[in-house]
Design a protein around this nucleic acid. Sequence first.
DNA 1: GTGAAAGCGCTAACAG
DNA 2: CTGTTAGCGCTTTCAC
Lengths: 343, 343
Amino acid sequence: MATTIQDVATAAGVSPMTVSNVLNGRQSVNDELRDRVMEAIQRLDYRVNVAARNLRAGRTGTIGLAVPEIDRPYAAQLASRVVRAAAARGLRVVVEETGTSRGGELDAIARSRVRLYDGLIIASVGLAARDLVDVLAASPVVMLGERFSGSGVDHIGLPNHDGTASAVRHLLERGRTRIAIVAGPPEPERTTASDMPNDGFELRMSGYEHALREAGLEPDPNLVIVGDAWDTETGLQCALSMCDRGLDFDAIVAMTDSIALGALRGLADRGRRVPEDVAVVGFDDISESQYSTPRLTTIAPDHNEIAELAMDLLTQRIAGPWPPTETVDHTVGFRLVVRESSG
Amino acid sequence: MATTIQDVATAAGVSPMTVSNVLNGRQSVNDELRDRVMEAIQRLDYRVNVAARNLRAGRTGTIGLAVPEIDRPYAAQLASRVVRAAAARGLRVVVEETGTSRGGELDAIARSRVRLYDGLIIASVGLAARDLVDVLAASPVVMLGERFSGSGVDHIGLPNHDGTASAVRHLLERGRTRIAIVAGPPEPERTTASDMPNDGFELRMSGYEHALREAGLEPDPNLVIVGDAWDTETGLQCALSMCDRGLDFDAIVAMTDSIALGALRGLADRGRRVPEDVAVVGFDDISESQYSTPRLTTIAPDHNEIAELAMDLLTQRIAGPWPPTETVDHTVGFRLVVRESSG
DNA sequence: GTGAAAGCGCTAACAG
DNA sequence: CTGTTAGCGCTTTCAC
């Protein structure tokens, strides 16, 4: 059996309370007693039982991070930043994979409701409006992604519209006019009844169209390529198909860097030179984009801002009332990082 | 205040024990009572308090996974597999970043000792022999990586020696003779006093030398390039420096895919064609290697075997006595995946 | 400055 | 089949 605070107390000839006080440095304890306690702790190799402390405190010291798939570079790099931001606040992070499904996301929320986590950061792609009630009934939640912008829950968004618009303007400045956009599948269900775009897909698409029209160009539906996933393979397949169909294009805006990297590969397979024949711009600035051949021009959202703000918000919500009386809806900043792929 | 099992019991007019039995389906409960209990659970929106259950059970249902840096592709892909393997067994995974340091690894072990985790999977690069006592004093641990092969703790290793040897043989078959090897820094301290290589660096190096000698070639110290990290940037810098120094080489074996991808980038920067001028082989088969330009030939260890075996071992250790009476030391299999970078 | 009592929410063990 | 008792290990009262 593991040694308890009681064992230490007996060994040191004091009460459990005194040991507790020594451990937590709460009340000032007589020096001699403290020494006796410390000695006993050492000698018995005592370790606090965190489960018991948690039960008492009503908190777990753990937060959940729910991402679609942890092995995607974007998710992995987000997880890394969240783990660090949490560690800086004395919290641990359980990584949940939702498998890009509403069900997986609801499971994560359920685990949060079961007080497994003090709070949850969820990069949602599948939740719908009717799930909001579950979200708010759970322990504190901060939403990433775009589905819940302005829905009465704390939300940190990416510069979807402005980022893509910026990418398109950059390509137009470089003299490209036949600019295609490559994406994964749109999200299944709208979260609001309004006509305002409210997911990453639609927002990025609208930024693309906006920047074209602004330059006096009418978006060409043929230049909108929608694949069936959000991974590198999708980018590759889309690029191959664009070439093989004889589509006329001189630039690609990819909705994610992973798709862009696949597109680079596909273009190379078809002998198209980047950037001479086709310029390519991605979105995310995952670290791999610095090392591709050619190096990838991309929209770089402020990743640290995302992680830090999410953790700040979450710790605030954990400390305060839930549901919160007032929610935050913030869109992080971005930079256009010009590298080789756009000339 | 959240509703407790007691509240449910009162509402349903039964004892807490009956509620518990209903919840866990342990003992058969009278249908009518069960219905009343279920109804009360629904009505009060009752959720079990996992902290309390954990305290009672003496387990947390959570394991730790300690990796050097989660945002490296290799770690992210390992984490993904472990999270899935754990989920299949009803366990959650806390991801710990050790920051490639012995201190970070000891912290993870300390948290395991504090019963935060039922067990720990640790991809160690920094622990030394003197830390073994801490490892064994903690809750169940399975070690990945090479430092603790045959050290009285469960260990799953990569096919370091044979993998690299296989890479070299492949290059020799392709007619290459000036085969360089590019690596990050060796690990700081030996875990055993013996002369047997016992870390990834040394094992992969010995496989390289072995295959060369086997073919009647004497390893050339000039062809051993040791960078100062294990990331893509290192591979890039090493390749640049090899070219700039006028080193004579016609192939590179990189100790990891990340390094290989950086080397591809560096070679492109210096106008060396791959594979015509220089053939490149990596190690790990991270998914990015399928999409690089050129696509990367690599040694592909059986990643699923690693995750599944680690989880199997860990759950076994959690259920059984600790420290274990007999330990497992297993090296997973591998395949040579030939792609464009080696011709 | 220190200790005794009580209880966080749950469930094993036993009694009924 | 159901309820009572007791206690997991810790910490918040509130005496002393």
